[in-house]
Amino acid sequence: MPLLTEDAKGVYVIAVTPFLDNGEIDWTSVDRMVDFYEEKGVIGLTILGQLGEAPKMTADESKAIAKRVIARAKVPVVVGVTAPGLAAMRELSDFVMEIGSAGVMVAPPWTTKTDDQAYAFYASVGEALGQTPFVLQDYPLTTNVTIAPKVIDRIVRDVPNCVMLKHEDWPGLGKISALRASSEKGETRRISILCGNGGLFLPEEMGRGADGAMTGFCYPEMMVGVVDKYGKGDVERAHDIFDAYLPLARYEQQQGLGLAARKYVLAKRGVISSAALRKPGASLSKIDINDVERLLARQKKRLAEIGA
């Protein structure tokens, strides 16, 4: 499988991790999930992210998930390798690259407080990972680390194996504009920018120069459709598709409950056998399920109205 590069475009969906009701990994659903995402047109998969419940897994489980997905997938796979220390990060990174990963993703530690600390961390990551291409995950809402555009520019200039930004500021549209302005002026390399936050700002992000999405949603075809239509210049159709799915995407963005809603719909769609999160994790109440079912019904109606 080819390595991740600065030219990456499209949708690299953040994959869930399927569990059985007893908390064990559901390997049959892992295979079915990979096939489902590919059938919906994603360009790549990203596994072992926060919404993949990676912090709840052992090191051996993480390696087993990576091995299973990489062996099954026909598209590039990016693996989250964020760890408290560089040694553990390097160990998992080396393992997944040896079995065919396209690259890895790294978020900063919560102890990062200053611009110089953010730069120093990613400079160290670049050195530790050697030739392995990596994604800089910029997700202040979860990490509590804000990385200014000027710092990202500095990292891009000095750390050649940083090939992608997972832009997940809230919404941070100005950050995308600033980064693209720097590369257009020749001040930095132009790296790939794929966006997160469940796709809530995807049309606007594409308009600012993003190359696609790296996030999760129970209907990945929404993100694929938006990115495809925007890339072809059919901006209004991209917005039509986005608008039809927006209420459900918004519901999924609830902290804690959102992943439970995503897994509920994926189970309803037959992608995974159980909607269970590994403990500790949220579960939907009957009222929550009623909310989701109403949103699904209205979404189906709207999609029919626009012929999508």
Rank of each mutant, 00 (worst) to 15 (best):
N290E: 05
L92P: 14
K74A: 05
A120D: 11
F201E: 04
G23V: 12
L141P: 00
W110A: 10
M1T: 11
I152R: 12
N290G: 10
W27C: 13
G281I: 11
K9T: 10
K56A: 12
V96C: 14
T111R: 13
D116Y: 05
V227M: 07
L179P: 03
G209V: 08
S177T: 09
S183F: 02
K67Q: 10
Q255N: 14
V96M: 05
K286L: 13
G225A: 08
K113W: 05
V79H: 00
R189G: 09
Q299I: 12
M97S: 06
G207Y: 01
Q299G: 01
E53Y: 11
L4A: 05
S273H: 15
G209I: 03
K113H: 12
K113F: 15
L303Q: 02
W110I: 11
K301M: 03
D7L: 13
R298E: 15
I99P: 00
G198W: 13
A73M: 04
A102M: 00
W110S: 12
R269V: 06
T146M: 06
A71L: 08
T82M: 02
R262E: 07
E236V: 04
A261W: 01
A210W: 03
G126Y: 01
D234V: 06
T17H: 04
I306K: 07
H239K: 15
F134R: 04
G23W: 09
A54K: 11
G258K: 08
V151W: 09
D288G: 12
V106C: 11
R189C: 04
G52L: 06
F95A: 14
A244E: 00
